[in-house]
């Protein structure tokens, strides 16, 4: 069952084509890597999927809702984590949880239980009353992720969720992602780290607004006859540079 279906999705900004006719599907429970250099159109595509931006042409559904006409319904069924780990720094850990639970309409009577469960899952029981600004970056990241799935969304969008975090913390973070996927949450993730691309079930690579490659990491490596995703990426990026000349 596809939870994200996109057909010929295109976005123009004046004469500039940010997203050029992309088509893909993401299955339920899948971890879908969305790769591309800066400016390739990843963010624009993701903003359209989240209902923040109207497509110029083409269509798509997320969690069964049309991204152009039902963006408010889309928003109720997705989670979103920005690359800045957008948490309120001057609020305590549990206050952040309570706020986002309120935003996503978790019933008031259930909020304390939800907070306790999240603290336990994160191993944060002792940090319940700590201000978020006092947490180390890796902890903030884990907290931001749990907060983004506080309402058990069908899909969670992660926009470069591991930027600036050390490798150990990144690996730990991916364990969280796997756990969420096991619980049936589809994960749509953009990243710069090619080792992380290997962790995804399937990856797409965007170059200049188009999707140039889309498959499992193993088959992509086979297709380009290279040893790592890093090499796949380099080959595609070089092709794009060549095409511009």
């Amino acid at each position: 069952m596809s939870v994200i279906k996109v057909e010929n999705l295109t976005k123009h900004f004046g004469n500039f084509i940010a997203v050029n006719n992309i088509t893909f599907q993401v299955e339920k429970g899948e971890i879908f890597g969305f790769l591309g250099v800066n400016g390739a159109g990843k963010t624009t595509a993701m903003r359209m999927l989240c209902g923040l931006s109207q497509p110029t042409s083409g269509s798509g559904t997320v969690a069964g809702y049309d991204i152009a006409s039902q963006s408010e319904d889309v928003k109720k069924h997705i989670g979103y984590m920005s690359q800045k780990f957008a948490l309120y720094e001057d609020l305590k850990v549990w206050e952040n949880m309570r706020l986002y639970a309120g935003i996503y309409g978790v019933p008031r009577s259930e909020i304390p239980a939800v907070i306790d469960r999240m603290l336990a899952a994160l191993g944060f029981e002792s940090e319940k009353n700590t201000l978020v600004k006092e947490l180390p970056l890796g902890w903030k990241q884990k907290l931001a992720f749990s907060v983004s799935i506080i309402h058990r969304p069908e899909i969670v969008f992660l926009d470069e969720p591991t930027g600036g975090v050390d490798p150990a913390a990144r690996r730990q973070f991916w364990e969280f992602i796997y756990k969420a996927a096991d619980e049936g949450i589809t994960v749509f993730v953009t990243t710069h780290y090619m080792d992380e691309a290997e962790y995804c079930h399937r990856v797409s690579i965007m170059v200049d607004g188009r999707i140039e490659a889309l498959d499992t990491p193993a088959r992509l490596k086979q297709q380009f006859s290279v040893a790592s995703m890093d090499d796949v990426f380099t080959k595609l990026a070089r092709k794009a540079e060549g095409g511009e000349q």
Partner: peptide, 13 residues
């Protein structure tokens, strides 16, 4: 600046 606005805009609020 902190990016929380983006998260709020993606939320159903």
């Amino acid at each position: 600046e902190t990016g929380t606005m983006e998260v709020l805009l993606v939320s159903p609020v």
